[in-house]
Every structure is written in structure tokens, then in C-alpha cells.
Write a protein that binds this DNA or RNA. Structure first.
Length: 214
DNA sequence: ATACAGATCGGT
DNA sequence: CCGATCTGTATA
């Protein structure tokens, strides 16, 4: 259990997406501390990847942090009401990032329940407990990650990653990314990764799980 | 100045 | 499947 340092993030988004599986995402706020185990990620490979915000070197106010150094949070608002959190990968001017798509709640569950449903943990149904952080928008709401965290360095003491044992290769499912139907050939790129047996994954790929065996 | 789509979610 | 809800982005 050690906090991930600068070096950890200096790799391609594809490598980082795999390396992040099993790690803890921690957020300390005034309300308290929350933590979740990362169980699902997606790699966005930058200027050549039609699904990426930085495709074709599109550099705007929103995408600017993707062009910065690795190890920063790239957070943006989606559909006018939800946030998505990414971790910037690779080197400056190579705008790659990893989208955090799902967590297994580990610590601060009561805080998460209040942020998600405005009620205490003990009043949550089984389904609500499973839905606390099983999607990119949900986990940001539960962890209180907002546009204010955009550009924040993960080497600080507020929002950061703690390394844990990476799952073995046979426990990682590799499949296509979610909700990028517009991305032409990139639709088929195997850039999504999740932990096979986790009940906290947002969308399962039954065919790939069968192929991976048990 | 205007138009429009989107790396989502929750309810029907 | 649909609507919510609004910012970033492109086009003119």
C-alpha cells in the first residue's frame, strides 16, 4: 500500500488503464474521506483516437489538461449534469488519458450514500448499494469530484491513488468502450478493462467473460 | 449570434 | 427507449 508517485503515471493510457485496476482512489474533503477500488477503466489514446476529446489535436479550454503532464485529473461536465474523471497519461503534448468508469466502495460509504441519495447508508436498498459508484458519473457524485478538481495533481494529499496488487491477467476482461458510437473505426478498439468478478462494473461483456473462462 | 451534440443516469 | 440539462464547440 503506497501512494502512486509521478513515475506511476508516465506511461501510455493503455498501460495506465491496466495498472490502475485494483488501485484505490482516495478523496479527502472537508466532509471526510472516501475511498474506492478501481474496477473499470477506459483508455483514450489521444490525437489518432476518434473517441478521444483530443482527437486530431483538438486543443481547447476543456481539453487543455489532457495536453499537460501526466498524473493530473482531467474532469469535465457531461450532458449538462454529470462529471467524468480521467487521469492524464503519457508525456506533455501527447494528450492521452484514462477514464475511471467504476469503483468498489471501500471507505466513506455513508458519505457516498448522502451524496448520491440524500439518505443514510442504513436506509439504502441492496440495489442502491451496488449503484453507489458503478459508473463514471455516479462515482464522481459519490466521491465529490467536480470540475473544480480539473487540473489537480494526484501527487497531492487531497485526491490521489494508492497502489495495491494489480489483478492477475486472467482476471482482467478487455473489451470495447461504452457510448462512443460516433467514433467510426475506434468503436472496435479494445480499450476498456474491468475486473472479471467485480459486481461493481458498469456494463458487463458476457461474451468476453465466457471466453476468459473461470 | 446561433445551433447542436454529448466518454450519463434514472425512470417508463 | 426517452428526457433532463447546459457547456463546449463549431459554423457563420
Amino acid at each position: 500500500m503506497e501512494k502512486a508517485g509521478k513515475d506511476f503515471y508516465m506511461k501510455s493510457a493503455l498501460e495506465l488503464a491496466r495498472a490502475l485496476l485494483g488501485c484505490l482512489l482516495i478523496h479527502r474533503t472537508e466532509d471526510g474521506i472516501c475511498a474506492g477500488k478501481i474496477v473499470e477503466t477506459e483508455a483514450y489514446m489521444g490525437t489518432k483516437d476518434k473517441a478521444s476529446h483530443s482527437y486530431n489535436n483538438r486543443r481547447t479550454k476543456r481539453t487543455e489538461t489532457m495536453f499537460g503532464p501526466s498524473g493530473q485529473a482531467y474532469v469535465y461536465l457531461i450532458y449538462g449534469m454529470y462529471h467524468c474523471m480521467n487521469i492524464v497519461a503519457a508525456e506533455p503534448d501527447n494528450p492521452q488519458a484514462v477514464l475511471i468508469r467504476a469503483l468498489e466502495p471501500i471507505d466513506g460509504l455513508d458519505l457516498m450514500a448522502y451524496r448520491r441519495y440524500s439518505k443514510s447508508l442504513s436506509d439504502c436498498s441492496r440495489k442502491e448499494l451496488l449503484n453507489l459508484t458503478n459508473g463514471p458519473g455516479k462515482l464522481c457524485q459519490a466521491m465529490k469530484i467536480t470540475i473544480k478538481n480539473n487540473g489537480e495533481s494526484l501527487t497531492g494529499n487531497s485526491l490521489y491513488i494508492v497502489k495495491q496488487g494489480t489483478p492477475k491477467a486472467s482476471d482482467i476482461i478487455t473489451t470495447t468502450r461504452i457510448n462512443i458510437a460516433y467514433a467510426e473505426e475506434a468503436v472496435h478498439f479494445p480499450y476498456r478493462f474491468y475486473i472479471k468478478n467485480s459486481p461493481y462494473v458498469s456494463v458487463r461483456d458476457k461474451a468476453e467473460e465466457l471466453k476468459a473462462g473461470r
